[in-house]
Design a protein around this nucleic acid. Structure first.
Lengths: 211, 211
DNA sequence: AAAATAAATGACACGAGTGTCAGTAAGACA
DNA sequence: TGTCTTACTGACACTCGTGTCATTTATTTT
């Protein structure tokens, strides 16, 4: 291993945190959280290890920051659009599921989920946050769409009774599959989405415009 | 911390491995794989740390052995029964899903899955094995039941086209939920099962005996 | 251009976990 | 009861990662 001729220091206070987080994500993705080291992350970020301590407390803080950075408001935005929407509820479901599958296909989401599952017990605050900001919003949104469909006579009257997590399950299944079995048996996300829509719409007794 | 008066050694070559594995499982469950130590496992098993090395190579070997021990042939047995069965396919689905949900509710399954997800990258052999012995068998079995239902006119003709992983998804969703969000928001497994059956049977266009 | 600020680093002390080995003692066998 | 086998253990040396200094040096300020 040749040592580089010159270290070539630079001061870039504003750019560092992001670069370090990116490096951490890559490291977690490759080695897993437990096996990742600050040295490895520093090397990947092109920085000396102590530099990390200037911006983050420890490895846990890196994961925390990554999770925070990942949180977006897309679900809330969709929900806000719901009021003004006048089209049929089946199309709404399609929109929602499509968006969810797209999110689940993002490698960053897969990595963070993997760590969250592995270390969740040690980060109860993050688990609560994630549940509240992602799961709960998604479930509520879906409930509202189903309820809307029932009121508008597009779905069967008893559709509102079922636990909507059964309906989103294929999204989580796809995410789970990517997390564990992707290497041994990939998954056609497009087809899963189409099949999910078929199953869900039929189960809800959808009488959409296309029938 | 008082030191106990006497260690009270015993020699039980045949009982040790199982006890050590149980201790390892408990430790993994509480601390997670990464944070677990051989010292902790040994303490829990009532054994000195070097004793573990008499039976296992290292921490990885413990997880490997736990996964092997967990593998059962229940799915294969169900499949064997399939040939002789003469009842309707909807009831078959109910049997299968009930069994799967029961498996998914086992805390040992939850813990092992958590570790498999966390460290999967480092155990490609185990991932392949698990896919082949659990996932593949389950998927094939489900495909066969659906095909049977279609041939017997119990399910809609196009039912065989859908990816059956969409149909089992609620089982994986429940397992996933237990793995991550159980503490912050528990889950009614019974209701999930019932709803899954309703959704799946309707989606398959089931015209079972009860309609 | 000189002084001041603080971003970045090399080096250190420390703790925690690992794997091994020679010695101990439990149980089998005579 | 005495001897033998080997399951079991205490203690050691070693590695690896962590967190924190004092110091260096890029950049800003005067």
């Amino acid at each position: 291993m040749q040592s580089s001729p010159a270290p070539a220091r630079r001061r870039r206070k504003d750019a560092r945190p992001g670069e370090i987080l990116d490096a951490a994500l890559a490291e977690f993705s490759e080695r897993g959280f437990g096996a990742s080291t600050l040295s490895g992350i520093a090397r990947r970020a092109g920085v000396a290890r102590p530099t990390i301590y200037l911006y983050f407390d420890d490895k846990d803080a890196l994961f925390d920051a990554l999770m925070q950075r990942r949180l977006t408001d897309t679900l809330e935005e969709i929900r806000a659009d719901l009021d003004g929407y006048t089209g049929d509820s089946g199309a709404l479901l399609e929109m929602l599921f499509t968006r969810m599958h797209a999110d689940a296909a993002d490698p960053e989401a897969v990595t963070l989920l993997r760590v969250l599952i592995a270390e969740g017990r040690r980060f109860p605050k993050l688990v609560r946050l994630h549940h509240q900001r992602v799961m709960d919003v998604g479930v509520t949104l879906l409930q509202e769409i189903v309820a809307r469909g029932v009121t508008r006579g597009e779905f069967a009257p008893d559709a509102a009774e079922i636990d909507v997590r059964v309906l989103v399950a294929p999204v989580l299944m796809a995410l789970f599959w990517r997390t564990v079995f992707w290497d041994v048996a990939p998954l056609d996300g497009e087809k899963i989405l189409r099949d999910q829509l078929r199953v869900v719409l039929r189960a809800l007794g959808a009488r959409g415009p296309e029938r």
